Amino acid sequence: MSIQHFRVALIPFFAAFCLPVFAHPETLVKVKDAEDQLGARVGYIELDLNSGKILESFRPEERFPMMSTFKVLLCGAVLSRVDAGQEQLGRRIHYSQNDLVEYSPVTEKHLTDGMTVRELCSAAITMSDNTAANLLLTTIGGPKELTAFLHNMGDHVTRLDRWEPELNEAIPNDERDTTMPAAMATTLRKLLTGELLTLASRQQLIDWMEADKVAGPLLRSALPAGWFIADKSGAGERGSRGIIAALGPDGKPSRIVVIYTTGSQATMDERNRQIAEIGASLIKHW
């Protein structure tokens, strides 16, 4: 067993022997301040990774656009098919120029040779490549099948209805392509620590998230040296922004954090800054 596999296998073990965790309302004060600064709703939840206990939450059962955070769930569904012998990570998928959609920095470079399922998941999570996500959605049967996968996990809230990039439209009061912070946090925890996926697939999923290259201005910008984070960000229309993450000190994750916002007129930089400040408060009061 590799060191990384050992780390993920012992996530519940280490967490069980940690000192009790206590909620700190100071972080919620910052979440509410972010709402004021952005002029928009902000949803927040913080779960203990081992027990699933909610440590703090704000608007945990209000719907927010998922945006690209759905790509972690998508690759979880792909990995479940791999575990069941219905898919192979090494299978190569070929596609054409007509398949390319807006923001496809990886797939646009491989029109000639195609990409493997493993490479597509890596591109979808680490670079948020939209064509990679659409190609992977095709392998599982489309958005409705991802929703069905989530329902089978016990998540009857999260739903995907459309493809990239239309799913980022974020129309107010439109339930399409949305989740709730509580539902997303619980589902992410199941994917990373539950028995739904094999140990190898859980490790692969967290490795992809740990290698995320496009979430630097968010929670990662607030992390002290030595902290662990595996995350996936999302951005959408109407001032929408979000991030889902597993993080913790001492090089291992111990909490799940989900943050979503929508309806702001603020710039992307300002949305990023507010999420980073929430992260800084979380870490300060850990």
Rank of each mutant, 00 (worst) to 15 (best):
Q265N: 12
M184F: 12
D174G: 07
G85Y: 11
P181Q: 10
N272E: 09
M184T: 12
R118N: 13
D161K: 01
A280N: 03
T139Y: 02
Y44S: 03
L205W: 08
A280C: 13
M180P: 14
A280M: 09
R176K: 14
V31L: 13
A40G: 02
Y95Q: 14
N168S: 15
V101D: 15
E87P: 06
P249L: 10
M153A: 04
T187I: 04
S51C: 01
S96K: 08
L150S: 02
T126G: 12
I54K: 03
P165T: 00
G85A: 07
T178Q: 14
E164P: 00
N272R: 08
E195Q: 04
S254A: 11
P172Q: 08
N130T: 09
M268F: 11
V72I: 06
N134G: 02
E46G: 03
S281K: 03
S68V: 07
P253L: 09
V29H: 12
M180S: 13
G248H: 06
A215S: 15
P217R: 04
D83P: 01
V78D: 07
R162M: 00
V29R: 02
M127I: 08
P253C: 09
E119I: 04
L196T: 06
K32D: 06
I243A: 07
Y260A: 06
L74C: 02
K53Y: 02
L74V: 09
K284A: 03
C75G: 05
C121H: 00
W227R: 06
T131M: 08
T267W: 12
S122Y: 08
D129Y: 02
N168Y: 13
E61F: 07
P181A: 04
L38Q: 01
W227A: 08
R273S: 12
S96C: 01
L136S: 04
I243D: 12
Q204E: 10
R162S: 00
L38C: 01
L167R: 01
A132C: 06
A170L: 00
R159Y: 14
S51L: 02
V258K: 01
C75V: 04
E102Y: 00
R238S: 01
G236E: 00
A132M: 02
G239K: 04
V72N: 11
V157D: 15
V117G: 04
T147H: 01
G141D: 01
G141L: 04
G248L: 06
S281Q: 02
W227H: 06
R241G: 14
L111E: 08
R159N: 12
H110N: 03
I171Y: 00
E175F: 05
N98C: 15
G234M: 14
V257G: 14
R202N: 02
R271Y: 15
S281C: 01
L205V: 05
P224T: 08
L49D: 01
P60N: 01
E164D: 00
L282C: 13
T158Y: 10
F149Q: 07
Q97Y: 04
M180E: 11
T131A: 10
I229Y: 14
N173L: 10
N50M: 12
G216K: 15
V258M: 11
S128V: 03
I243K: 07
N98S: 11
L74P: 01
E277D: 05
D113T: 08
H156E: 13
L160K: 03
H285L: 01
E35V: 02
G39N: 14
V82M: 02
N168M: 13
L135M: 06
V72W: 02
V78P: 04
Y44R: 03
L191R: 12
S80F: 13
G248R: 07
A222D: 15
T198L: 03
H151C: 04
R41T: 10
T138L: 05
E35T: 08
A34F: 15
I278L: 11
I278W: 08
I206H: 09
T112N: 04
